[in-house]
Amino acid sequence: MKLTSILLLSVLGFCAVYAADVVDGEVTDDAPKASQEEDDLTIGASPDAELAFHFVQPADANVLHEFYTGKPVKFLIGFQNKGEKDFTVKYSETSFRFPTDYNYHLQNFTRGEYNRRVSPKEEVTLDYGFYAHETFAGRPVGLVVNVHYQDADGNVFVNNVFNQTVNILEDDSGFSGETGFLFIFFVALSIGGLYLANQFLSKLSRKSGLSKRRVVEQGTSSEVDFEWIPRDAVKNKEKKSPVAGSPKARKSAKKAE
């Protein structure tokens, strides 16, 4: 019994010492790595660069911070070189973040590539635009815009020019690209229908007018073809035809015969 207790205590003591060694090894080995990663990700702004940010579409986005789905969102970035060395603005990155945790990315937009050199005491304006997808309608999101640039010595800097929560609203204008296509389609279809109806009525009116003209011509024609009538019949008809005039004239005409 005593031997069993001694062995059990020995095993437990060995496990405790091993676990402590493992924990100590993890802390001492991983602490420098985590610190190094944080140093690599922490890139600040240059004191010789001054940046500005301004929305141009929609016009009231600078105050309301509201965007509509399906409509363009455009902004300008002003970069001023206040130092004595050249800067090169490489690109801007825009993303939607989770409003309560900006480390969580909801959507990364295409980078705005610039590669624009800015001389000392020079100022340039850069632009970028994106569309808010309809899946974000009715919810707030964090909008983050970062600008990456470097100086003539190759030092890399990142400026965060916008980092706020914005509201994505559903476009209630009722007119979209699909609606516009359907509208144009129905207009074209209506024009085609009116054209065909006009052609049909024209042909119908021409036919009815031609038939009317033929009836009138047949009913009012006064021309007689005498070639098929024998000449003797024509002469006898002329002799038998009454002589116009008074009865005295007719009597005198008979006496003369």
Rank of each mutant, 00 (worst) to 15 (best):
A49V: 14
G70H: 06
D24M: 12
S222T: 15
L41P: 01
D24Q: 13
K82W: 00
F162V: 01
Y102E: 06
E93N: 05
K74A: 15
A34T: 13
G209E: 15
E223C: 10
V216Q: 11
I184C: 09
V144P: 00
A233N: 11
F96E: 00
G129C: 04
T220I: 09
S46Q: 04
N163C: 03
K71F: 03
E113M: 07
V156A: 02
Q164P: 04
S190W: 12
S221M: 04
P47S: 07
T100P: 00
N159G: 06
I6K: 02
A244H: 08
L7K: 11
G209V: 13
N108L: 08
I184A: 12
G129R: 05
Q57F: 07
V23M: 02
T179A: 10
P140K: 14
G192W: 15
S221A: 04
T28C: 02
E178C: 05
E26C: 03
Q218T: 14
G112D: 11
R214S: 08
D172F: 04
K203C: 02
R139C: 06
T4F: 07
T165L: 05
F136L: 09
G193S: 12
V89P: 02
P32L: 00
E93M: 02
F67A: 05
A20Q: 12
W228I: 15
A132F: 01
T88C: 06
S252Q: 14
H65D: 05
E178K: 12
P120Q: 03
P58F: 06
E84P: 01
S208P: 02
L182E: 15
K254N: 03
A34P: 00
D101H: 11
K248V: 09
K82H: 03
K71S: 12
L3A: 14
L76E: 04
D24L: 11
S10L: 14
